[in-house]
Design a protein around this nucleic acid. Sequence first.
DNA 1: TCTAAAGTGGAGTGATCACTCCGTTACAAA
DNA 2: TTTGTAACGGAGTGATCACTCCACTTTAGA
Lengths: 186, 186
Amino acid sequence: MAARAPRADALRNRSRVLAAAEQVFVARGTAVSTEEVARAAGVGIGTVFRHFPTKAALIEAVFRERLRRFGEEADQLVQADDPSQAIWVFLNRVAEVAAGKQAWADAFAATNVRDALTPAREQLPLALGTLLERAQQQGAIRPDVTVGELVALMLAVSRVPELDADGAALRARVLAIVFDGLRARA
Amino acid sequence: MAARAPRADALRNRSRVLAAAEQVFVARGTAVSTEEVARAAGVGIGTVFRHFPTKAALIEAVFRERLRRFGEEADQLVQADDPSQAIWVFLNRVAEVAAGKQAWADAFAATNVRDALTPAREQLPLALGTLLERAQQQGAIRPDVTVGELVALMLAVSRVPELDADGAALRARVLAIVFDGLRARA
DNA sequence: TCTAAAGTGGAGTGATCACTCCGTTACAAA
DNA sequence: TTTGTAACGGAGTGATCACTCCACTTTAGA
């Protein structure tokens, strides 16, 4: 009955696979073969499937890990001093990380990570909710916006295609328009 | 040298395949097999490949056809009388058609349709440019927005995921925020 | 140090696809 | 109507994947 301690190499390999998968998925999309993920992680393909029973489970785990880290960043911003700026800092940060990464919507389509964004259960939506409420009390953001709408907007903006040569500039201008839509009217 | 007239069945089959492919791609994504497209069109798989040499070419053709129809709608709105409303009508129409259709960004990722959105070459960006200019002269839309930004925004919004039970309502609220960002300030 | 069990790696398996090939069919022009 | 040819259909081909299986290795606990 007493569970044995997990083996050190198993833990190490698991996090290696997660890190390598994130890199590879972000760079080349979630359509890359599991074998390539294994190669990038320096493990055999059998090891990948031991830790993540299906490819969908691997994609989901990568996405959840990314959201978890966003949750930590949001929490740190909740502690910080300047409440009216905090939410803009966070949204900019999300846009920056998401820039040009096709893998995100793939992950959303392929897996069921909705509950990772459900308030009252996960760190990210809770912290983001706090940031949003504060910004609304300060009059920085219009009062009728919800956390769900914010998340949807950021997911949408993360998919802005590279229409012209300077994709970064286009993304910045699109983001500025969306932010203006979020601001409270005088 | 004198080219023979194209066969009636070839023309018929080509448009049948295009129509069936749009239906199937929109309903189930561009990952569906070419054989399913052929079945939906009521033709053999060989016929599909005769008209569209690769699957990517088929996806691109479906997407271009969709853009072409949007271009026609935009042109009709250019003729219409109420210039300050025309662009909102058009943007709403695009959002309505795009709602819940995962196939779009797939098409964008998989094919090279950028030039179908290049102004001065295609109907859609030209007509949309006219609608935008008018709306800006009327003071309905902020003067610094470009056609490219509009297109990018609409592509992004078309990818708003279904985060909660009522996907349509979420999309509507997200669209309202984006539209507010586009409006000119008093 | 010893050993039972957990973990590893990678060849192998079956399924799925995009695409080809060619015998048959249907059309346009004469 | 006849005929040359463009178009059709669908079995077949080769490549790619996700996933399995098991002989071997490494680890935790005694």
